[in-house]
Computed example of a mutant assay.
Amino acid sequence: MRENATEPESKLLRAWQLAVLRFAVTLDDDDRMHALGVAGEVDRVGGAADDAFHFFRRTTAELCAAISGQGTDQDAVIRRFLAQIDNVRLKRAVEAAIARDRTPPKLVASRVKPGPDLWRGLPSRRATGT
């Protein structure tokens, strides 16, 4: 993001990054179209009145192709996008969403069944005669 961007421009750029993230997670064509729509909005804010300025639409099309495993020089396209994200949490989310192996991280270690000596040394629960 540009450092001297105004607040509305910053929010629009963040919305574009989030739209790309959403596509990376779902790989859904509707989400790709949404990301391209947001890119068009960013282009209109930062560009000329005509359709000559289309950097974000072109970049979004390249990103979506790279994320989908299509296009040329996929890793370079993704690295350039990641380098432009200044929010650490968003960057990590994008990295996780576009991970090549697409295997979710293991959150819980495999459970170990208790051994027969689990209760050894503890007093018995049986009621003692009183």
Score class of each variant (00 low, 15 high):
C64M: 12
E3G: 07
G71D: 11
K113L: 08
A49G: 01
L27G: 11
D51Y: 00
A97C: 09
L118N: 02
T60L: 03
A24R: 05
E95A: 10
K106Y: 01
A19Y: 04
V108W: 05
R89Q: 07
T103N: 07
R44L: 07
E7G: 06
R111N: 10
H34C: 02
R57E: 09
W119T: 02
L118K: 07
P123L: 12
W119R: 02
L90P: 10
R120D: 08
R57P: 03
R111S: 04
D28L: 09
A61Q: 13
E9V: 14
L36K: 04
V42I: 13
L122K: 11
T6W: 00
R92S: 10
G47I: 05
H34E: 11
T103M: 13
R111P: 03
V38H: 10
L18K: 08
R14E: 12
R58M: 06
D31I: 07
A99H: 12
I98M: 08
P123C: 00
A93G: 07
L12N: 06
A15T: 12
R120C: 01
H54W: 03
L12A: 15
G71M: 15
A76S: 12
T26R: 01
H54V: 07
R32I: 13
D29P: 02
E41N: 03
D75W: 00
S10T: 15
K106S: 13
I85C: 09
S110P: 13
D31F: 02
I98W: 03
M1P: 06
E9W: 01
A61G: 13
D73K: 10
G40T: 08
R80Y: 00
A24P: 09
T128P: 09
